[in-house]
Design a protein around this nucleic acid. Structure first.
Lengths: 347, 347
DNA sequence: ATCCCTCGTGTAATCGATTCCACGAGGAGG
DNA sequence: CCTCCTCGTGGAATCGATTACACGAGGGAT
């Protein structure tokens, strides 16, 4: 592959001049510029990004470590992150942690080894030593969705408190009194916060949240299945199950169906995170929608602010309730366009 | 950040010795090794992958350019690719083309600029100049899922011909005679092949595939919606719609529902690509399942073979039909576990 | 005792860019 | 006419690693 030296030789100038032309440096004669450009075209030359990075000490690359790519929420997040980054002249390398702390650490390490300019993380756990060290180590960093308390890193997330309150009001209005939740891992902020918000909202309506109604999940479908089975085996099963993410809702749906029960007649279901498929499940699932795309874009902007030496503030964008039929509400009349109440993937 | 020089100074040896220790070179005394290792630990030193790549001319990184991350099929593919690559000591950088040729070219270019060791591509189009040039340019390359005819690059894909035949047999057995297809872009191999396979299978059963029953989609949900509306507006609408990917099936579902019609009573639906959500849609969707994980792993192995100078063969793995209720079949008894007939995401 | 190998180590070249500094040519000003 | 600037240019250092080569010490064979 042609290098800058080949171009210099072909154009009959020094490598310094070639570099200047390529980087738009002003003091290059028109004649030299023309010849360099011609040589570049003739050789099909493209600068070696590796060499350039070594010299300039910047890669124009962002790392994104997410908890689980198979989760449509994170897929969409990743997509919007890449989009915004590209618009601002950066590339993105994605590391998928699969909700496994050691895999997360592996990715953080490889990303740092590659000298990415900044790191966007949605931590899988409460803060591994590796992660803390990275945060303190001076790499520009921003947390997105989930965060680790006690580290001085800006957070871009969505605030679901209000929407959860709306959900509980909706459920209460429908006459439901025994509400259960499939929680995310206690090690994650989103795992804890959603339970807290749920409990607080229940409190407002004078409803309890007994321990047996708090099932411990791990944000994966299987755990939703398992926890839901546990709920159904209770002497007094809940009337509603609220899954703290969309995958566990899928698992819950599996479990309910496997028992030959129906949603919402036998048990109601709601989920945190809205996805296009929820419109078409049987029944359509009531969910709390996060402004995912906005979150991703804001996170990138915050990270680039950090990289460029500014000190961005944390951001919390409100989530909102999208009512469908899985809790027993009539929902939007099914003869009208039911699709109007849901976000579609921005294709 | 500490460099190899700092380590050398700390350990009281030369950088050459440090390098040798780090790379497991045999001729280093035990004493020197110990001191280097101690210095590495003391400084928290990690080799700079950028510098290393420049010198060794290899990045131990693979590029993966896929057509659309938001498509669960490709998400799963990307996931299995990364997994296998990691197991073999490589990292993966994903480029999402969003079904846009110019975006695909952008990613190919950036990836090549970064001097990735090999490129895995699922081309969005029939072969842009950029792509052809990359293939000829000596970069080890493998096509996955889709490919470009006429370039000498191994292909790892799934063969759906047999499964499509099974589907048509299934539909024919159910009494359906007017079958339509929402095709993918003619510029893609999968776009064409699925139509061809469908037409051939129909032929075996003496069924026609009239032009109005071939709708032109682009693998995105919106096009599925649009095409389905067209079908429904036909003087004689089809009895079955076969969507060439899962997103267009989602769009079809949207369109049918927006008309207040029901699947399968008013119109049947089947899709190419199976995804976990198809179990829980209303109704569960009959689909052709590709061995996605296997595809991703095989593609990585083929690419690494190429990188290491071997000449891997193309691979075609069979897809298979998964019958559910969207075509009117009774399907597996709904009181039994309906989940047993479908793949789940391997969490 | 001499010679030769092997082993451990260091010096320095190298990868492909960027960029500081020096230098010569040419124009402007005194 | 001389001096001083500016402008365009090239030489060479540099980033952080790897690795060819040279070299000295030590051990075994003769």
């Amino acid at each position: 592959m042609a290098s800058i030296k080949d171009v210099a030789a072909e154009a009959g100038v020094s490598v310094a001049t070639v570099s200047r032309v390529l980087n738009g440096h002003p003091s290059v004669s028109a004649q030299a510029r023309t010849r360099v450009l011609a040589a570049v075209a003739a050789l099909g030359y493209r600068p070696n990004a590796v060499a350039r990075s070594l010299r300039t000490d910047q890669t124009r690359t962002l790392g994104l470590v997410i908890s689980d790519v198979l989760n449509p929420y994170f897929t969409e997040l990743a997509r919007s992150v890449e989009e915004e980054a590209r618009a601002l002249g950066y590339s993105v390398i994605i590391g998928n942690a699969d909700e496994r702390p050691e895999l997360q650490d592996h990715h953080v390490t490889t990303l740092l080894d590659r000298r990415i300019d900044g790191l966007l993380v949605s931590p899988t756990d409460g803060g591994s030593p590796r992660m803390i060290e990275a945060a303190r180590g001076g790499t520009p960093m921003v947390f997105v969705d989930r965060w680790i308390p006690g580290v001085d890193v800006p957070v871009v997330r969505s605030d679901g408190r209000e929407a959860v309150r709306d959900l509980v009001a909706h459920l209460h209005g429908l006459g439901h009194r025994r509400l259960a939740i499939i929680a995310g891992p206690a090690a994650t902020t989103t795992g804890r916060e959603r339970v807290d918000a749920f409990r607080a909202a229940l409190g407002e309506f004078g409803l309890p949240l007994p321990d047996p109604y708090i099932g411990q999940g791990d944000f994966q479908a299987d755990s939703g299945r398992r926890v839901t089975e546990g709920f159904l085996d209770l002497p007094e099963p809940p009337e509603v199950v609220f899954a703290a993410d969309n995958l566990m809702a899928l698992g819950a749906l599996d479990a309910v169906r496997a028992r030959g029960l129906r949603v919402p007649e036998d048990i109601a279901l709601a989920a945190f995170d809205d996805i296009p498929w929820f419109v078409h499940t049987d029944p359509p699932v009531t969910a709390i929608a996060q402004p995912t795309g906005e979150l991703g874009r804001a996170a990138v902007r915050a990270l680039i602010d950090r990289i460029e030496g500014r000190r961005p503030e944390s951001v919390a964008l409100p989530a909102r309730l999208v009512v469908r039929r899985s809790c027993g509400a009539p929902g939007p009349a099914s003869s009208a366009s039911p699709a109007s109440s849901v976000r579609r993937s921005t294709s």
